[in-house]
């Protein structure tokens, strides 16, 4: 993987979702941090360097795509993967976000573990 940190940020207001992703990533030997809101996520972004962010589309305090934009402002090299039950893969807003480079991948909920693992190697 990259020479950068292998620390991964998980942003979801649903603690059980974080739990599921954390277990999966930990089993791959990766370290994670958890943000239950956009505010928490941005605070963590200021404190540490993350190679990847798994991001929910709808957060109580901010839209996921808006948060993606702010994350890239802070750390442009971060790869942002949206994990959402609200959008579907062919959603216009998702395709736009991908083409604008706002997000680097989209996984719809519920997901297969392989889908998550696949984006780790991308």
């Amino acid at each position: 993987m990259s020479e950068q940190s292998d620390l991964i940020l998980i942003v979801d207001d649903e603690p059980d979702m974080c739990w599921a992703l954390e277990h999966l990533l930990h089993s791959q030997g990766l370290a994670t941090r958890r943000g239950l809101s956009a505010r928490e996520a941005l605070e963590l972004m200021q404190q540490e360097r993350f190679s990847r962010v798994f991001l929910d589309a709808k957060l109580p305090d901010m839209d996921g795509l808006e948060l993606a934009r702010r994350i890239l402002e802070i750390a442009p090299a971060t790869r942002v993967i949206m994990v959402s039950g609200y959008f579907y893969r062919n959603d216009v807003s998702i395709q736009e976000a991908v083409s604008q480079g706002l997000i680097h991948g989209f996984i719809s909920k519920p997901f297969l573990q392989e889908e998550i693992l696949k984006v780790l190697t991308a």
Binding site: M17, A20, V83, G85, K109, P110, Q113
Partner: peptide, 9 residues
């Protein structure tokens, strides 16, 4: 889909 995703995982 949130609880479904948790269940599936």
């Amino acid at each position: 889909r949130n609880p479904l995703a948790v269940c599936a995982s």
